[in-house]
Design a binder for these strands. Structure first.
Lengths: 236, 236
DNA sequence: AGAGAAACTTGAACACGTTCAAATGGGACG
DNA sequence: CGTCCCATTTGAACGTGTTCAAGTTTCTCT
């Protein structure tokens, strides 16, 4: 059984120190009940009434802590993120080759996310809506996004990679986008143990490695500049 | 006001010629009512009861023709696709430069899709779920997908582009993926008239053009082979 | 301790997507 | 014409996410 990572939404609760956490236990109980039920029967077949029941609270109380049923999946997002950061950090210690580091961070994600692949579709659907706070591009998830980008910065910084400074600066964000692409593929991947996603990672990493190193070639200067310029101008 | 493109779902109705189309009018009326209401008040505020009312049928009847509320947005998908094909075909006549052709097909899409940007988020959310027939990757939308890829094949085939055959064969599909990326950006683009998406297209097209032409360079052979191999092995 | 405020809790009520058993309509065939 | 069959149509009923007015508990301040 997967354990719950309690993530207090510090953006919403202003003063964690002085504020009593009387309600935190309830909040956690509700999130835990939701996780259990989602894993047991999936998102659709889990009713808010069942979540409230298992958490031992009233249905109205569940809505006091979570604005909607969709908000209950935030806990998964957080949990995967935390577990990935820990596992990736671990694996990054073993090599300073860029390709190795990138591959291990990406495959680590697939490992960590595996238990949730069953309802990844629902998860994805909820995060897809641009107005959703769970969207990976939303301002609400900026913290999580920057943590994730930071992980890719570690991949680059701790590596043997020698590339133009302009590329080096943008690379973490580009690699995060690559990760989003992997997630997209993973969500659609119905092969056992997500074999195909793992194969994708194995294949795409050497290609990225090659492309990035190619950026040092004199003839590539123009392209590199264009890419950097594109990213700059496209960022909000 | 946008007019409705009637798209009979020929996959579901086996024998269009001999089967009486008594019900086709009803089906069309329901789809038209849904379109109007979606545009007037958005997806969420449009109830199935309101759709049925405006179409002059009972609510149960609406469900006889459309399996769910989500299925009602299929009509938009079809309509945009048809309008895009027509407008793009038109604009393709004006140049044989690859960059021009690609740019006009992509900007044409932004033009055609503009009226629907308001509830593009909902549209996107619905299409995001991997199990949804509306997903761009689903088997149900294979026809639409192939039509769209065919459009990019026209972009390539009618152009002055000289590239290795292996790349040329895969290019339409890659450009379709680029289009999906543009759509993703567009959905999140809240600038007026989707200026930022248009800017993205203007910037990304020359870059793609440059990259594709670069594929002829001897040093690129390896990379090209890798890319082609990646696509091959990743396709289901 | 007591009063008042703030945090928390409750469950009935509501809205809307969806289902379904039953009614209606019309075409084919005798 | 009668009758059988199948497509179509109906609206009441159901399940579930969500809201809300009212209650209860805990904290704070004097």
């Amino acid at each position: 059984m997967v354990t719950l990572t309690t993530v207090t939404d510090s953006a919403n609760r202003a003063d964690p120190a002085s504020r009593s956490d009387r309600g935190e236990q309830t909040r956690t109980a509700i999130a835990a009940a939701a996780q259990e039920l989602f894993l047991e029967r999936g998102y659709d077949k889990t009713t808010m009434r069942a979540v409230a029941d298992r958490a031992g609270v009233s249905i109205g109380n569940a809505y006091y802590y979570f604005a909607s049923k969709e908000h209950l999946v935030q806990a998964f997002y957080d949990q995967i993120q935390v577990a990935h950061a820990a596992a990736a950090e671990q694996s990054l210690a073993s090599s300073d080759k860029f390709g190795d580091r990138l591959r291990s961070v990406l495959t680590t994600w697939v490992d960590v996310a595996e238990p949730f692949h069953g309802f990844a579709g629902k998860f994805f659907k909820i995060a897809a809506e641009p107005t959703s706070p769970l969207s990976p591009f939303s301002s609400e998830s900026r913290g999580a996004r920057e943590t994730s980008i930071g992980l890719f910065r570690q991949v680059v910084d701790g590596s043997d990679l020698k590339v133009p400074a302009a590329i080096r600066a943008e690379l973490p964000e580009l690699l995060w986008l690559l990760q989003m692409g992997v997630v997209l593929f993973w969500v659609h991947d119905s092969s056992t143990d997500q074999k195909r996603t793992r194969a994708l990672v194995r294949q795409v990493v050497p290609l990225v490695d090659k492309l990035v190193r190619l950026s040092r070639l004199p003839g590539m200067r123009g392209v590199v500049g264009d890419v950097v310029e594109l990213i700059r101008s496209v960022r909000p």
